[in-house]
């Protein structure tokens, strides 16, 4: 059956996720409202600017509905900014300068706290430090050699015991999993490799959600 996968469409790399999903035979839906989530078998929080997306989530009152979606056991994937939003906490690499007595602390986006990890934002630097590189050897076999594109990327730190590492790059964890929730600090939607989307949708779905009992025959 074709899976319907929502992509949160407040801002960011929505279209590229939709394209990757279509390539693996899933049906992509742009979603903005809690009622839209009911139509989704799985959901992606895309990359973009985490502060901008978080403010959109405030306005659209999406925090609680997204938590409820995750608790329903349906697969949830956050990439880059989306991964920051899934984390227990987001921190900045460097504290922001104070302006008129307003420090940087308030500037952090709130997070959903769905994955027991700290996301350190812009940890590699600005755009001039962005890069792409293959995942380290030792990633799960289905993702061997996956090319990871890091754009103003966060770094995952202080992983909790329930969080498993599916891939590393240069020794750092870059793809995490906690039950049906996956978080990537890179952009699997950039480039032509749909393996990660397929794996997330197939594997996470089958483990988190047993197939429904067959409908009774008339």
């Amino acid at each position: 059956m074709t899976k319907r996968v929502g992509v949160l469409a407040i801002q960011g790399g929505v279209e590229l996720h939709a394209r990757a999903l279509e390539r693996i035979g899933a049906h992509a839906l742009r979603v903005l409202r809690p009622a839209d989530f009911d139509n989704c078998d799985a959901l992606i929080l895309p990359g973009g600017e985490s502060t901008t997306i978080a403010k959109g989530m405030d306005r659209l009152k999406l925090w609680e509905p997204l938590g409820a979606f995750a608790r329903s056991g349906r697969p949830l994937l956050g990439t880059c900014a989306g991964a920051i939003l899934l984390a227990r906490e987001s921190r900045l690499q460097q504290p922001l300068g104070a302006v008129n007595g307003l420090g940087g602390v308030r500037q952090h986006p709130g997070t959903l706290g769905l994955m027991d990890v700290v996301a350190r934002r812009n940890a590699y630097g600005t755009q001039v430090d962005s890069f792409a590189a293959p995942a380290d050897e030792g990633a799960i076999p289905a993702l061997a050699g996956f090319r990871c594109v890091f754009i103003r990327a966060p770094v995952f730190e202080e992983l909790g015991p329930a969080v498993s590492v599916l891939a590393r790059q240069d020794g750092r964890p870059v793809l995490l999993r906690c039950g049906s929730i996956w978080a990537a600090s890179f952009h699997p939607e950039l480039g032509d490799d749909p393996r990660l989307h397929a794996l997330w949708l197939g594997r996470a779905a089958s483990q988190a959600r047993p197939a429904p009992p067959p409908a009774p025959h008339p």
């Binding site: 469409a9 279209e15 973009g48 600017e49 901008t52 755009q127 890069f131 594109v149 754009i151």
Partner: peptide
């Protein structure tokens, strides 16, 4: 690949969409 790669540059532009 470093940030000089066009793909990485366009990647950031993609992330600014809708903003």
């Amino acid at each position: 690949e470093s940030a000089q790669s066009l793909e990485l540059k366009v990647g950031l532009a993609e992330m600014l969409k809708g903003g």
